[in-house]
Design a protein around this nucleic acid. Structure first.
Lengths: 187, 187
DNA sequence: GAGTTTATTGAATAAAAATTCAACGAATTT
DNA sequence: AAATTCGTTGAATTTTTATTCAATAAACTC
């Protein structure tokens, strides 16, 4: 047991190190030796834990895909309040639990171009937009949000969030914006 | 003369092809052979026109850095109208003059991590935020924009725009959002 | 504690991609 | 039209980076 736990620990350490480097420097600019050095361990040992660099990325993206769903509306909170609250939590993670924050950033980056195709597909398989689109539709019905194509509004909302989070990931000193600013894009 | 013009034409063709591929697939996922094939020309010839792949990127970024300044306020248009108009134009470029649009996307991407450091520095040297911050400050004075750290607001504004443009670059069928949505982030 | 499995290393190898180059055809000059 | 320069190619080379591997140490099983 201790042996297996040890292994899991180390796997996790590698994953977190890779996540950090992938987000801070980019997947392609992060060399396998950079990850090994940062963990730290020998490069050879890294392949004892993960088949390949791409496999490492795919495992991260799979984790990220599972951890999604927290944006789902709970109960009867008004849509704008729900989104505002969600963003507030997300932004506060940037300081407290960077890996949650980084995972979000990574997922967004992988979903776009510039990464190995297989990883992209995993990230693309989860539907963030649809979920938020529902929420926006509800908000429109209540007269809280302005009119417009809900899917487009959802995409813009998340694209903005992604853009801001990438900026925050790059510049550690940047303060988080007020969630209201972003939500007001929908009002 | 015809000879030199010919050369300039070809250089431009390479630059535009590279710009497209860099934005659509990402710098690192674009192989030098992909560019050559797309132009089309042999891989060897490409090095007759550009020293290296990185040099090619740097030339693009330098071009992009020079073409900046259109966001500068002209005359006495209200800040919100100015920004709305600017975005409207930018988004319409996405269809009409994709390379202008792509250049914007590339500049943003290069400024962030994941690209060769030298290129990053060129992109980082131009100050987009400061210019918009002035505009926002003016808007605040007039009571058009809400209170808040103008630099942060400026960063968030551009981060949102960048995020949305990257989304549009990836998904050609995506409609452009209404510029008002984004500007309302500041109101 | 002998034997087996697992962790670890760093140098050797393989794979992928950028870059060079010798050769040739086309244009330009004289 | 001979000589020279420039454009062009694609295969060979170099460089970079991922991946393997033989050897060793440590942990665990019996």
């Amino acid at each position: 047991m201790t042996r297996k736990e040890q292994k899991e620990e180390k796997r996790k350490a590698i994953l977190m190190t890779a996540l950090t480097l992938f987000v801070e420097r980019g997947y392609h600019e992060t060399k396998i030796t950079d990850i090994a050095e940062a963990v730290p361990m020998s490069t050879g040992l890294l392949f004892h834990y993960f088949e390949s660099k791409e496999e490492l990325l795919k495992e991260l993206v799979t984790m990220g895909a599972q951890g999604t769903g927290s944006a789902r509306p709970t109960g009867d909170v008004p849509p704008d309040v729900h989104l505002t609250g969600f963003l507030g939590q997300l932004f506060s993670y940037a300081k407290e639990q960077p890996w949650v924050f980084y995972m979000f950033v990574l997922m967004g980056q992988v979903r776009r171009a510039g990464m190995p195709e297989e990883a992209r597909q995993i990230a693309a398989s989860i539907d963030t937009f649809g979920m938020t689109a529902e929420l926006i539709k509800a908000g429109q019905k209540k007269g809280i949000f302005h009119k417009g194509d809900v899917l487009l509004m959802s995409k813009c909302f998340w694209a903005s969030v992604q853009g801001i989070m990438e900026e925050m990931a790059m510049d550690k000193d940047m303060k988080a914006p007020s969630p209201e600013w972003i939500v007001s894009m929908l009002k």
